[in-house]
Amino acid sequence: MKIKNFLLFSILLSFVLVACINAAIIFFMYNTLEKVNINALLLFSGILFILLSIILNSGINNYINYRIDKIYNQVNSLKKRRISRINVNADEFDFLARDILKYSYKKKREISKLNYRENYRRDFLGNVAHELKTPLFTVQGYLLTLIEGAAENREIREKYLKRANLAIERLSEIVSDLDLITKLETNGLKLKMDTFNILKVIQKVFDLLEMQAKKKNIKLTLDKFYDIPEFVLADETKMEQVLINLVMNSIKYGKVGGTTIVSVDYEDEDKLIVKVTDNGEGVAEADVPRLFERFYRVDKSRSRDQGGSGLGLAIVKHIIEAHEQTIDVTSTVGQGSTFYFTLEKA
């Protein structure tokens, strides 16, 4: 039976104890042939009942509070804050249960986050080691071959030195991107906000990547002719880097003879939305949510052959979020992908 109020419990217990004491007194006086004074017995019973009720209620409250304080002291040592002492009744016990359950749930969530971060850290370190190991071993292999005598052959020497230089460039690119993404994550990279024409930046990116696109016969184009400029408020250098990474990504994973189309449209009266669309191999639905993770590759062996540090999309996401804007992607296997992000209108 659930006791709703400890005062009621104290009264009932006092009544039972007084009844037992009275029964014992009457029984004793009956055996000793003493006359029972009813008035005195009633007065004694009343006084005893009141005293027992007060003592029992106070004792139960003190004991329960003592036990609860011990529980809260243990919880407080972890919560780093004090919880006020409570007056004991069933409602406060419900409060205690809810508070401890809430605290337990919070700690479970913290443990889950710590486990996730630990797994993320382990994966990140493993990925960094793997990405650095490949170009390092490549350079080491070519240099050892040259040291063992291949350097005497001029043709082999030049070929191996060029390959070693390419591996060092890849290594330098990985280190540079790691440094950049670390600065982005720690707010160490400051944005230089300015007003500029985003269409002009897109055309500049097309000019920079024209040679890479021609190697796969990929056409870089805008979705339409824009007769007026589209001014935005952002860091122009960082936006150029975002577009370079997205367009380069579309070239790497685009099909030979394909197209990369960039469009600029109105998200609302305060924002523009920039889309980079290709008709390449696309990405499976299960891989889409992880595309912006550091070093994540859909097809690890093939992606590594394409070059790059594996940090491009992660850097893009950090730059866009540093502008307090959003970026997302839609993709269909065999049909291509569309990366789109918002920018503040100037």
Rank of each mutant, 00 (worst) to 15 (best):
K4W: 11
L13P: 02
V16R: 00
C20Q: 07
N22H: 02
K35G: 03
A40T: 12
L48G: 05
I50L: 15
L51R: 03
L51N: 04
N62D: 14
D69P: 03
Y72K: 05
L78M: 02
R81P: 01
R82G: 08
I86Q: 14
V88C: 11
V88A: 12
N89H: 05
N89F: 00
N89V: 00
F93H: 09
D94M: 07
I100A: 07
S104K: 14
S104L: 09
Y116M: 12
R117D: 13
R121C: 06
L125Q: 06
L125K: 11
Q140D: 11
G141R: 10
L144Q: 14
T145Q: 09
A150S: 15
E155W: 07
I156C: 04
I156A: 13
R157L: 13
Y160T: 06
Y160F: 15
R163W: 03
N165L: 14
D179V: 14
I181L: 00
T195P: 02
T195L: 05
K200G: 02
K200M: 04
M211C: 02
A213G: 09
K215N: 10
N217M: 02
K219I: 14
L220G: 02
D223S: 13
K224G: 06
D227T: 15
F231H: 10
V232P: 03
K238Q: 08
E240D: 08
Q241M: 07
V242S: 00
V242I: 11
L243A: 08
K252G: 07
I261G: 05
E269K: 12
E269F: 09
D270E: 15
L272M: 07
I273S: 11
K275Y: 13
N279G: 07
V283H: 04
F292R: 05
F292N: 01
R294T: 10
F295Y: 02
V298L: 07
S301A: 13
H318S: 14
A322W: 02
H323F: 04
Q325N: 08
I327G: 02
G334D: 03
G334E: 11
G336H: 02
T338M: 04
F341V: 08
T342N: 12
E344G: 07
